[in-house]
Amino acid sequence: MSPYISPLFGVAMSVSVLLIMSSSHWVFMWLGLELGTLAFVPILTWWHSSLEVEATVKYFIVQAMAAAMFFFGGLVSTGTEYISSLNQIVGNTGEVMIMLAVAMKLGLAPFHYWVVDVVQGLNYIPGMVLLTWQKVPGLMVLTQLGTTYNSFFLLTLGVLSPLLGGLGGLGQTQVRKLLAFSSNAHLGWLVSGCVIGSLLGITYFALYVVLSLPVFLFLHLLNAVHLNHLRMSLMFNPASGMLVGIGFLSLGGLPPFLGFFGKWLLLTHLVDGFLLGLAIMLIVGTLVSLFYYLRVSYLCLVILGPQQVMIGLSWRKIYMTNLVSGMVVLNMIGLVLVGGVSCLPK
């Protein structure tokens, strides 16, 4: 792909988000979603490998099915507005179809298996965009279309995602699949936050992006495919192993890391809203997924050993030392933020 054409696709993806933000009708939301999808498809095949082409075809087929379901749900909801008898029979079927279509586009459970297959065939950079930025248009649609009935439906899917994301990643040894299941688990927390309050969802999404970007970038530099391959790569890059290990601990939501702050913030609002069952189910799903977070962190921080990290750091690579130190400090401020927020008057 020409470097002069690729920025246009990034601009189109940004325009799709702006179109959804400024729209109040489902047709323009549908146009915004499809504009972002069509702009993202060429980015998936950047390196033109056979695995990328296969993953792109899978992504396009799923997105096309979801787009057809979204449009049909919009037509159903529009038709029932003018026919009272049909409205009594059909009810909120159109809105439910729209919500299911957006859930399929996001990869929300139980429609999450396509995300695992697509991410497995991609490089880390397009996979990072798929698991971060491509969630924004769908989440904005869910936030704008949310009602009392739809909120209960979305909270049900939000509880299901951490459970399936945790169980699905237990037996995985492929690094990209672990990241896909991890993203699905975080997506359940993110959808629950968007339903409770849009500002809460934005905060959790920003924290997830800040934690995920360094992990994806360093795994891209290491070119790790399998956990055993990751171990061999980290033997020659011990400083990167320290950052990846702490990044996975932070994604797991352990204190005092930064990922703990996002989960604590959401759980506080759930308890204040007397949604104790939802909070317990989210915690259970996170504890299940914590197993593979700890497995990767153990591989990066314990098996390599601190003496190898100190030997591997050289004064000629002082920029790497500063970068790792800065990211470690950033991930260690979770309890500081919790303490500061707790002292604020309510």
Score class of each variant (00 low, 15 high):
V210W: 11
P255F: 03
F260H: 01
M232I: 05
N223F: 00
P238A: 05
P238W: 07
G245D: 08
L234T: 13
L249R: 05
F236G: 00
G253I: 08
L217N: 14
V244L: 13
M235Q: 07
S212M: 15
S233P: 01
R231A: 05
V225Y: 06
I246P: 00
G247H: 08
V210A: 15
L211P: 08
S240I: 14
N228R: 05
M242S: 04
V225R: 12
N223A: 13
P238M: 03
P238Y: 03
A224S: 15
L219E: 11
S240T: 14
L249H: 12
N228G: 15
L217V: 15
L217W: 15
G241T: 11
H226S: 13
A224D: 03
M242K: 01
L254P: 04
M235P: 00
G241Y: 13
S233T: 06
I246L: 14
L219C: 12
P214L: 11
L243S: 15
G252E: 02
L213W: 07
H229R: 02
S250N: 06
G245R: 08
L258N: 03
V225S: 10
H226P: 00
M242R: 03
F218G: 00
M242V: 15
L221W: 12
L234K: 13
P238T: 04
L249P: 09
A224G: 08
G253Q: 06
G247K: 08
F218L: 15
P256W: 06
L234Q: 13
L243T: 13
P256E: 04
F236D: 06
L251C: 01
H220V: 00
V244Y: 01
S250I: 08
S240Q: 14
V244M: 02
R231Q: 12
V225L: 05
L222A: 15
L249E: 09
S212D: 15
G253K: 04
G245K: 11
P255T: 02
F248P: 05
M235C: 02
G241F: 10
P255S: 01
N223P: 00
L227K: 06
L230H: 02
F260K: 01
L222K: 11
M242G: 00
L211Y: 11
H226T: 10
S240H: 11
A239Y: 09
R231L: 05
M235F: 02
L234C: 15
S233G: 10
G259S: 05
L213P: 00
P214C: 12
V210S: 13
S233D: 03
H226Y: 07
G247Y: 08
L219Y: 10
G245C: 09
G252M: 05
V225G: 01
L221I: 10
